[in-house]
């Protein structure tokens, strides 16, 4: 691999942009294709399909073999609410490889003592989120129970097609949330993407156990389910 290609791949990763390294086999000739330049590549259709699945692999085209190193942006987790569950989730998410950001405008909650070594922003989600560039490789979990704080996060996550959108709260709380989002103009299909009650059902009781169930649900959404853009059929299945 040429050093300039390696540097470019790392640069795209840091900028949260997808790219593909095409290596002809067995020769080893390589070219580096940014997502923005895909359309003009001879393998455009194949490369676009590989970016949708995010999977590297061997492909054949006109009698030649190529290995595609597919690099999608690292999965990122944005948590709204510096609450007890978040304190448990933060170290778990880091070990699982998520790039974690926590937002909570309540300075009593958002303290460095409670959240050492984490990107913690003590400001309103609606002020901060536009600067973060949410994308389909981002998961958003809202834990404050306070519509003033949670709703802007949910709205941004749905609009950005984030691969996971979860919100803490009972079915009753979620029912009210659904009404608010409808009034804001979100479609039933969009609203049905919110995971609520949040987390997979493992009978979680303590904050740490709830964190496990939420992290498991995020991993499930990332790995098992197709990314949002490929799964329009999910809308019909939602309750």
């Amino acid at each position: 691999m040429r050093f300039d290609v390696l540097t470019a791949m790392n640069g795209e990763r840091a900028a949260r942009r997808a790219c593909v390294l095409v290596t002809e086999m067995p020769g080893g000739d390589q070219r580096f294709v940014k997502a923005a330049d895909l359309a003009s590549d001879p393998l455009a259709d194949i490369l676009e399909a590989s970016l949708r699945t995010g999977k590297s692999g061997m492909v054949e085209h006109e009698g030649r073999s190529y290995f595609l190193t597919v690099q999608t942006p690292p999965a990122r987790l944005l948590v709204i609410g510096a609450v007890h569950i978040t304190q448990a989730l933060a170290p778990m998410a880091r070990v699982a490889g998520f790039d974690l950001t926590i937002i909570d405008p309540r300075t009593a909650f958002a303290t460095l003592e409670r959240f050492p070594d984490v990107t913690l922003i003590a400001d309103w989600p609606q002020e901060i989120i536009p600067t973060l560039g949410l994308d389909r490789y981002t998961a958003v979990a809202c834990f404050t129970h306070d519509p003033k704080i949670d709703d802007p996060g949910l709205e941004a996550a749905l609009s950005a097609d984030c691969f996971y959108v979860g919100a803490l709260g009972s079915r009753k709380t979620h029912g009210k949330r659904v009404e608010r989002l409808k009034e804001k103009g979100f479609s039933d299909e969009q609203i049905a993407r919110i995971r609520a009650p949040v987390g997979i059902d493992i009978g979680a009781v303590s904050p740490a156990e709830i964190a496990v169930s939420v992290l498991a649900e995020i991993v499930l959404s990332l790995r098992k389910k197709p990314l949002r853009a490929d799964a329009p059929q999910r809308a019909g299945a939602a309750a």
């Binding site: 050093f3 390696l6 540097t7 791949m9 790392n10 990763r13 690292p74 490889g97 790039d99």
Partner: peptide
């Protein structure tokens, strides 16, 4: 995966 290629660089 995020830091492996960065280390190579």
């Amino acid at each position: 995966d995020e830091n492996i290629l960065a280390r190579a660089e």
